[in-house]
Deep mutational scan, measured.
Amino acid sequence: MVQRGSKVRILRPESYWFQDVGTVASVDQSGIKYPVIVRFEKVNYSGINTNNFAEDELVEVEA
């Protein structure tokens, strides 16, 4: 279970941040499909630095 402030590695192959490390900004408990919002240092092609992920697409590298 990841929690706010954890450092996580992204396992979603189609993601711009695949294999990159980001910080968990928040975790939604309402039961949505992609409840974990992760914030990154670098921006993607659209200038965005956050994205939603499912918990099984993340691996915690640092608490």
Results as ranks from 00 to 15, higher is better:
1 M>K: 14
1 M>A: 13
1 M>C: 13
1 M>V: 12
1 M>I: 11
1 M>L: 12
2 V>Q: 04
2 V>F: 15
3 Q>C: 12
3 Q>K: 14
3 Q>G: 09
4 R>C: 13
4 R>V: 15
4 R>H: 08
4 R>M: 12
4 R>P: 15
4 R>D: 06
5 G>L: 00
5 G>H: 02
5 G>P: 02
5 G>Q: 02
5 G>D: 05
5 G>K: 01
5 G>V: 02
5 G>C: 09
6 S>I: 09
6 S>V: 09
6 S>M: 14
6 S>L: 05
6 S>A: 13
6 S>H: 06
6 S>N: 07
7 K>H: 09
7 K>S: 06
7 K>W: 02
7 K>N: 05
7 K>M: 11
7 K>V: 10
8 V>I: 01
8 V>Y: 00
8 V>Q: 01
8 V>H: 03
8 V>F: 00
10 I>P: 03
10 I>D: 02
10 I>A: 01
10 I>K: 01
10 I>R: 03
11 L>P: 02
11 L>E: 06
11 L>N: 05
11 L>S: 04
11 L>W: 04
12 R>Q: 07
12 R>L: 07
12 R>N: 11
12 R>P: 07
12 R>G: 04
12 R>W: 07
13 P>E: 13
13 P>D: 05
13 P>V: 14
13 P>C: 10
13 P>I: 11
13 P>G: 04
14 E>L: 07
14 E>P: 01
14 E>G: 12
14 E>F: 04
14 E>K: 05
14 E>D: 14
15 S>D: 07
15 S>V: 02
15 S>L: 04
15 S>E: 05
15 S>H: 05
16 Y>K: 04
16 Y>Q: 05
16 Y>M: 03
16 Y>V: 05
17 W>N: 02
17 W>L: 01
17 W>G: 01
17 W>C: 06
17 W>V: 00
18 F>C: 07
18 F>D: 04
18 F>Y: 14
19 Q>V: 06
19 Q>L: 14
19 Q>S: 07
19 Q>P: 02
19 Q>G: 14
19 Q>T: 06
20 D>S: 09
20 D>E: 13
20 D>R: 05
21 V>K: 00
21 V>Q: 02
21 V>E: 04
21 V>T: 08
21 V>L: 10
21 V>D: 00
21 V>G: 01
22 G>Y: 06
22 G>Q: 06
22 G>L: 09
22 G>C: 06
22 G>D: 04
23 T>R: 03
23 T>Q: 05
23 T>H: 04
24 V>K: 00
24 V>Q: 01
24 V>I: 05
24 V>H: 01
24 V>E: 01
25 A>E: 15
25 A>G: 04
25 A>N: 06
25 A>S: 10
25 A>Q: 14
25 A>C: 15
25 A>V: 15
26 S>N: 10
26 S>K: 11
26 S>P: 02
27 V>Q: 02
27 V>N: 04
27 V>K: 03
27 V>I: 14
27 V>T: 07
28 D>V: 08
28 D>S: 10
28 D>L: 13
28 D>N: 09
28 D>A: 09
29 Q>Y: 13
29 Q>S: 12
29 Q>I: 11
29 Q>F: 12
29 Q>C: 13
29 Q>P: 12
30 S>Y: 06
30 S>F: 06
31 G>Y: 09
31 G>L: 11
31 G>V: 08
31 G>W: 07
32 I>Y: 04
32 I>M: 10
32 I>W: 03
32 I>R: 08
33 K>H: 07
33 K>Y: 06
33 K>I: 08
34 Y>W: 10
34 Y>K: 08
34 Y>I: 01
34 Y>E: 05
34 Y>F: 11
35 P>L: 10
35 P>V: 11
36 V>R: 00
36 V>F: 12
36 V>G: 00
36 V>I: 15
36 V>C: 05
37 I>F: 11
37 I>E: 14
37 I>L: 15
37 I>G: 04
37 I>D: 05
38 V>K: 01
38 V>F: 00
38 V>M: 00
38 V>S: 00
39 R>Q: 13
39 R>W: 13
39 R>S: 10
39 R>I: 14
39 R>V: 14
40 F>G: 03
40 F>T: 03
40 F>Q: 02
40 F>I: 04
40 F>W: 00
40 F>A: 02
40 F>R: 02
41 E>I: 08
41 E>L: 07
41 E>K: 06
41 E>F: 04
41 E>Y: 04
41 E>P: 06
41 E>R: 05
41 E>S: 08
42 K>C: 13
42 K>Y: 08
42 K>M: 06
42 K>N: 11
43 V>S: 14
43 V>I: 09
43 V>Y: 15
43 V>T: 11
43 V>C: 14
43 V>H: 13
43 V>R: 13
43 V>M: 13
43 V>E: 13
44 N>S: 08
44 N>K: 06
44 N>R: 01
45 Y>H: 15
45 Y>N: 15
45 Y>R: 14
45 Y>P: 15
45 Y>A: 15
46 S>L: 15
46 S>H: 15
46 S>R: 10
46 S>V: 12
46 S>G: 10
46 S>Q: 15
46 S>C: 15
47 G>Q: 04
47 G>S: 03
47 G>C: 10
47 G>F: 02
47 G>E: 06
47 G>P: 05
48 I>N: 11
48 I>D: 14
48 I>R: 07
48 I>F: 10
48 I>E: 15
48 I>Y: 10
48 I>H: 13
49 N>D: 11
49 N>P: 03
49 N>Q: 07
49 N>C: 14
49 N>K: 04
50 T>H: 11
50 T>E: 13
50 T>L: 09
50 T>G: 03
50 T>N: 04
50 T>Q: 13
51 N>I: 07
51 N>R: 03
51 N>Q: 15
51 N>E: 15
52 N>L: 05
52 N>S: 14
52 N>C: 14
52 N>A: 15
52 N>R: 12
53 F>E: 02
53 F>K: 03
53 F>V: 00
54 A>L: 04
54 A>P: 01
54 A>H: 07
55 E>N: 10
55 E>R: 12
55 E>I: 14
55 E>H: 15
55 E>Q: 12
55 E>A: 13
56 D>C: 12
56 D>W: 15
56 D>N: 12
56 D>F: 12
56 D>V: 08
56 D>E: 12
57 E>C: 07
57 E>D: 06
57 E>H: 01
58 L>H: 01
59 V>L: 12
59 V>D: 09
59 V>T: 08
60 E>D: 06
60 E>V: 15
60 E>N: 10
60 E>R: 11
61 V>S: 02
61 V>I: 12
61 V>W: 06
61 V>Y: 06
62 E>D: 12
62 E>L: 10
62 E>W: 10
63 A>I: 12
63 A>C: 13
63 A>M: 12
63 A>Y: 11
63 A>H: 12
